[in-house]
């Protein structure tokens, strides 16, 4: 694990880290990844991955309209809103284009 790698994943996760945080996280992630290396010693050839411990078939419900959260409630926690929309800063900037 290198500091540049930590910066890359921080960017993927939309996190900003200062130089001190990058340094600390690099060391901590390095230690954790070192610990999980133990899994590599296990032969898992042909072992099916477990996504859910208790498998259930995807349940289907009747195709019928049911009451959902009404727009007023859905917007009640909005940091900024306009009528029935969430307002956000402009979408494009030099980083996002």
């Amino acid at each position: 694990m290198q500091p540049a790698e930590v910066e890359r994943i921080a960017d993927l996760a939309r996190l900003e880290l200062d130089a001190g945080e990058v340094q600390r996280m690099t060391a901590e992630l390095e230690a954790i990844l070192g610990y999980v290396e133990a899994l590599r010693t296990l032969d898992t050839t042909g072992v099916e991955p477990t996504v859910h411990a208790i498998p259930v078939a995807t349940p289907l419900r009747e195709d019928r309209a049911v009451a959902a959260l009404d727009p007023e409630r859905a917007l009640a926690n909005a940091p900024e809103r306009s009528d029935f929309a969430f307002v956000v800063p402009k979408v494009l900037d030099e980083d996002e284009t």
């Binding site: 940091p79 956000v88 800063p89 979408v91």
Partner: peptide
């Protein structure tokens, strides 16, 4: 920071995401 919870002030959406989460 879009629909609920804390939002950090920023001039663009990308910056708002990063600052809010950080």
């Amino acid at each position: 920071g879009v629909r609920f919870g804390r939002r950090a002030e920023a001039d663009s959406l990308g910056e708002m995401y990063r600052r809010t989460r950080s």
